[in-house]
Design a protein around this nucleic acid. Structure first.
Length: 376
DNA sequence: TCTGGGGTCCTAGGACCC
DNA sequence: TCTGGGGTCCTAGGACCC
């Protein structure tokens, strides 16, 4: 989907069409905290894009129209579009809220393009939403093609054109290659996918690790057989939140973790799932992230187990943060303590806390009967 | 210049087992 | 007194995606 969140908003606020609109946090005159989630193509002309801090968005375009996100609404729209795809193929799969695919059985590229245009028109007419379509011999090629098709296009890459289609693109165009890996590749002289195709796999391994063989094949246009993904439930679920101002108050942080853990337990239960691993994440003011996790002997869906687990992990992290205070960096001269310090001013600050659960499985009927058994 | 909230997958080390 | 080679599981961190 193209600029998906913004496109959903424009559906219900058509008067904003053609304007620089972004779904984002409140920029608060340049002092807001948070990022742009989705920017209209008009807003992109000013440099707005997703993940851009709102303070910078405001600096680039003070008059941009911001709309707070409404995820349930985007979820509804996503499901509508998905239903359309499923009607075309039972093998249709979603990969995120704004991406989906179904298998292309190969054959005539011109016919594929016609089918793509038809689908695109269908989505626009029924749901008033723009999308781009990529068609190719593997999911990865199709995804890269759809990126090149944006906005509003259809790009078909026949199997025998994969290598030439990719050759001139930057390595970053491959999903899975981000800023860091792009730099690693640049260090061995690889900037484009064409250059990647020229390098022996063993030299690529240094920059790409386990990804090297797959990426090398892709770059050389070798299409691997890949099993069509199964429909599976999520592997983990979580909830996180960022304080309006960084907190160094253990009580405030504990309350937030407690709240998140309860909300998470509820959504895990709503989905009929059970978990075995609890993870607590803390982002410090300096953006360094700490993560502590614990695996339980058995899966459970119990709220109190999740809450207790998260709070214990938090206590661990808090005491580690306190340790950091007691052993300060080779410091500026510390004023000698005069008398017993009543409350030592905290030197740490917490920006974000998050709780998540993993090792998920469906709550099995047999387990439920065991529970009943146990409570008898 | 300042960086949200939801996820997936990979790496590396250590405990533990045979 | 010094100890191989194989495996699994758990934990922490990090890159990446939308």
């Amino acid at each position: 989907m193209d600029a998906f969140y913004v496109s959903c908003e424009l559906k219900r606020r058509p008067e904003l069409k053609g304007q620089p609109v972004a779904v984002s946090a409140d920029p608060k005159g340049g002092k807001g905290r948070g990022v742009v989630l989705s920017a209209s193509y008009e807003a992109r002309k000013f440099g707005l894009r997703s993940a851009l801090p709102v303070s910078q968005a405001y600096a680039l375009c003070p008059s941009y129209i911001w709309v707070l996100p409404d995820f349930p609404f985007y979820e509804e729209n996503s499901k509508d579009v998905m239903a359309l795809l499923t009607a075309r193929s039972p093998q249709a799969r979603t990969f995120s809220i704004d991406e989906a695919a179904y298998p292309w059985e190969g054959g005539d590229p011109a016919g594929a393009e016609r089918e793509g245009r038809e689908l695109q028109k269908d989505v626009r007419e029924r749901f008033d939403l723009p999308c781009s379509i990529g068609i190719g011999p593997s999911l990865t090629v199709a995804k890269i093609a759809s990126d090149r098709a944006k906005p509003g296009g259809v790009v078909v890459v026949p199997p025998d054109s994969v290598r030439s289609f990719l050759a001139s693109l930057p390595t970053r165009a491959i999903p899975g290659i981000g800023k860091v890996t792009e730099e690693e590749l640049a260090r061995v002289g690889v900037a484009t996918i064409g250059q990647m195709a020229e390098l022996p796999v063993e030299r690529l391994r240094k920059a790409l690790g386990a990804m090297a063989p797959g990426m090398s094949d892709l770059a050389r246009g070798v299409v691997r057989e890949e099993p069509w993904p199964d429909e599976e439930g999520p592997r983990s679920m979580g909830a996180m939140s960022t304080f309006d101002t960084d907190s160094s108050d253990p009580k405030e942080v504990r309350e937030e973790v407690d709240r998140l853990a309860r909300a998470l337990a509820e959504s895990v239960q709503r989905q009929g799932r059970r978990f075995r691993t609890v993870t607590l994440r803390v982002r410090r003011s300096d953006f360094q992230q700490l993560q502590r996790s614990r695996t339980l002997p058995q899966r459970t869906e119990n709220t109190e187990t999740l809450v207790r687990g998260a709070l214990q992990l938090l206590d661990q992290v808090l005491s580690e943060l306190a340790q950091d205070i007691r052993t300060p960096p080779p410091s500026l001269e510390e004023p000698p303590p005069t008398g017993p310090p009543r409350s030592r001013p905290a030197r740490w600050g917490i920006r974000t806390v998050g709780v998540s659960v993993a090792d998920l499985a469906e709550g099995s009927p047999s387990q439920k009967s065991l529970d009943r058994f146990a409570s008898d």
